[in-house]
Nucleic acid binder design. Structure first.
Lengths: 336, 336
DNA sequence: CAGCACGCATGAAACGATTCATTACTAGAT
DNA sequence: ATCTAGTAATGAATCGTTTCATGCGTGCTG
């Protein structure tokens, strides 16, 4: 026998199993001497509650699942921290899954979470999962989308207005007199990428002579950014953009490395660069990075709150969309 | 009824529950037409296995717990990724807990993991948890220590030789002619911090006239680093060290920001700076950061492998200590 | 003193999947 | 016709906890 059960504790303390359970869950219902006898037995046997059994009985768990696009991205670690803090306060546990921008891994995590009977799911989606989420909801597992504005208003979501954010970034570049803007980012199936680009396009359309070129990437990582940056550096100078808007800060930092590798291209003199997220490292970059700040921890915390409220609601919960405003942070990479 | 059970499936398919279970777990034992009837019932009811029930019956889970010092530190995200990849391949799930360098949170996660009956624990310890780990082991839950060399040889561990790493960092600074070295790091209760400092001291002792000053920090974060950097910047120039060894890269990046805030202090001319971990952002810092590289993902993967082997061993498993060598990476922050 | 309420403790039932000893049936051998 | 071997399906027992209807005893009220 690896570990002791309530039955063992009950036997040793000379009481019934129901009483042991009462000591554990409703101490006020149990007399003092029985409580102490049971406690002694628990200590002596090293009894530890079996969560699986509790959960089976209870029917639902005290976990909520969180699927992020990239666990290495400080934006998401911050978001997760915000969610975890709120969860801990409510006696919940957060299970974090990393989809790595891969729809198959995302699906696998949703399956896992469903088998675990999580109380709800926080999701930063890749691709179109709405049908699956509707299915989950039908089975009693609500979802709150994070960092994404839904067009489907039947789901709650907490996001930053990426359209406006993209617009702010591009407007900033345009206000500096830059006209040939390159948008570095991808894959475009990721909503945040598409929205930020759309915002940029909107800003550019209002300025005659301004253009946007899209430089696609496979993922939103430093490595992808570096590749894109190098590609741009290797162009004849006349073919280079005079400003780059990267879909997030990881990409931007990679772009920075790619551009400056040989000291060829000067940022911001030749090319102004702005990122997105304002991660902690952005301020510490070779050339401190201008960026669009998102309240990451707050997004996580708010989403978790919404989720718990939705999970507790008996029925007919009103889905809520919360959108935080983005904020422009100007640093040396756009104003040398 | 929120979700269907095997019983419902069995009833609909007109077979016994045992048969449904067989379809799920030993398809080869079941005739083709029964299998298809059961499958149809599963699909129709949207049946999803209840993990809690399986686990209760099985006695042990398919999860392993991982507790890291700081989930926002890229070193640990990398380590976690390494562990997760290996775990996924072995059909295990990794539950990640963030102790935040806080012994109480660490203890809480260990309690949680024990209640979940995890198969084993990967731990980057804060403070002295050995007694607790021995208790866990007594209850069938093995632990592998990561990023830490144990003095207690009864536990397996995977680590980088921090003593040597510290020595390498300091030797590098000394070889550049620097003599007044400041070690920025803390709390010293964290083994990695203590070891890296001890290594630095060792190197310094061999060079006449060289000294080490310790500048303590509360945590190993960018913020703490910035505070330490500012404190040093605000000293009269003569009182400043001519080199700084930061206990990790986050601190080093903070120190860099703190020193350069007013453009006062030049790195590396006035103060050479080296960090530890070689996180992805180190190369992209204002002044690209020299550092001591650790194979983070490999550490995580190796630790997980060791853990699974230990968990499967019936008894009398030989604890193994694996130590990877650190590697010096020289960049502009020490050789302008 | 009957009747009642109250405080504590009891123990069987339930949660859902898995296992395994048992049964049912078929086909082939004698 | 009888026996054996083998395949397929069965269903009760099990894991550990919680819940809840029930029982027991004590003391209070009318």
């Amino acid at each position: 026998m690896v570990s002791a059960s309530v039955k063992d504790v009950a036997a040793l303390a000379g009481v019934s199993v129901g009483t042991v359970s009462n000591v554990l869950n409703r101490p006020e219902k149990v007399s003092a001497d029985v409580t102490s006898r049971v406690q002694a037995a628990i200590d002596q046997l090293g009894f530890v509650r079996n969560d699986a059994a509790r959960q089976l009985r209870a029917g639902l768990s005290h976990s909520i699942g969180l699927v992020v696009l990239d666990a290495a991205n400080p934006f998401f670690t911050e978001l997760a921290r915000g969610a975890e803090d709120k969860a801990t306060a409510a006696h919940f546990t957060v299970l974090v899954g990393n989809s790595n921008e891969d729809a198959a891994r995302e699906a696998a995590y949703l399956d896992l979470f469903e088998q675990q009977r999580v109380r709800g799911v926080l999701l930063s989606p890749v691709g179109n999962v709405i049908p699956r989420l509707e299915q989950l909801r039908g089975r009693g597992i609500p979802t709150v989308l994070v960092d994404r504005q839904t067009d489907n208003l039947s789901f709650s979501s907490v996001a930053v207005d990426d359209l406006t954010g993209g617009e702010m970034a591009a407007s900033h570049l345009l206000s500096l007199g830059r006209r040939r803007i390159a948008f570095v980012g991808g894959p475009s199936s990721i909503r945040q990428v598409a929205d930020r680009l759309a915002g940029a396009r909107k800003a550019v359309q209002e300025v005659p002579g301004a253009t946007v070129e899209v430089v696609g990437t496979d993922s939103l990582t430093v490595l992808s950014g570096r590749a894109a940056g190098e590609a741009i550096r290797l162009r004849p100078a006349a073919m280079r953009p005079d400003a780059i808007f990267a879909a997030n800060d990881l990409l931007a930092m990679g772009v920075l490395q790619g551009l400056m590798l040989m000291g060829d291209v000067k940022v911001p003199e030749e090319i102004a660069l702005i990122g997105y997220d304002d991660i902690e490292f952005a301020a510490a970059a070779v050339v401190p990075l201008s960026s669009i700040r998102q309240p990451s921890a707050l997004i996580g915390a708010t989403a978790l709150e919404l989720l718990l409220r939705e999970a507790d609601a008996e029925a007919g919960f009103m889905p809520t969309q919360i959108v935080f405003p983005p904020e422009l942070v100007v640093r040396a990479s756009t104003t040398g």
